[in-house]
Simulated assay, not measured.
Amino acid sequence: MAYTHTFTEAQALKKLQQYCAYSERCHSDVVNKLYELGVWKKEHDAIIAALIEANYLNEERFAKAFAGGHFRQKKWGRNKIKKALQQKQVSSYCIKTAMKEIPEAAYLQVLQELFLQKWESLNHEKNRFIKMRKVSDFLLQKGFEPELIQPLFSKAKE
């Protein structure tokens, strides 16, 4: 939504408080919103500082919510979550902290479920190697690590 007029610093702060209260946001999301609102660049730092001070904006909290949510809802693997957080310019410290939010047992369970689901869906495929490649490509695209995918094929039934 493009705004036709520029906002004052106080108006932009109020608008961004609502924006951040609605959902967890990262710094880059807030900066993009500031540009969208037409706020002068020199006012960005003061607004972001005010949001951080009032605890509306917390990058570590955002990263944890993002990682946990995308793992549980979209069943993304660690690699895809890390790349998405890096694209949002989240710090490496926050990314590492966010990765700890994903329990190892649950991660392996989701990987196993996705593997079996995809393997079963390819029952029409007669060539085992093509089937293995398709399943592997699917799991890699979901962001799972190759070293975790490979052992699953030894347990797979034809």
Rank of each mutant, 00 (worst) to 15 (best):
M1S: 05
A2K: 15
T4I: 14
T6Q: 04
T6R: 00
T8F: 02
E9N: 08
A10V: 13
K14P: 01
L16A: 01
Q18L: 14
C20I: 08
A21S: 14
S23R: 14
C26R: 00
L34R: 02
Y35S: 07
Y35A: 05
V39I: 10
E43N: 15
E43L: 03
E43H: 07
A49S: 08
A50S: 07
E53S: 14
A54D: 15
N55I: 04
L57Y: 11
E59P: 02
A63C: 03
A63I: 06
F66P: 03
A67S: 15
G68V: 12
K75W: 10
K75R: 14
R78A: 00
N79K: 13
K82T: 07
Q89N: 12
V90G: 03
Y93S: 15
K96A: 12
M99V: 03
K100F: 02
K100R: 13
E101H: 02
P103N: 14
A105D: 11
Y107K: 14
L108E: 08
Q112T: 12
Q112R: 12
L114C: 05
L116W: 15
L116Y: 13
Q117R: 15
Q117W: 10
W119Y: 01
I130C: 10
I130H: 11
I130M: 14
M132G: 04
S136N: 07
L140S: 05
P146C: 09
I149P: 05
Q150C: 06
Q150F: 08
L152F: 03
S154H: 10
S154E: 13
S154Q: 15
A156W: 10
A156N: 11
K157P: 05
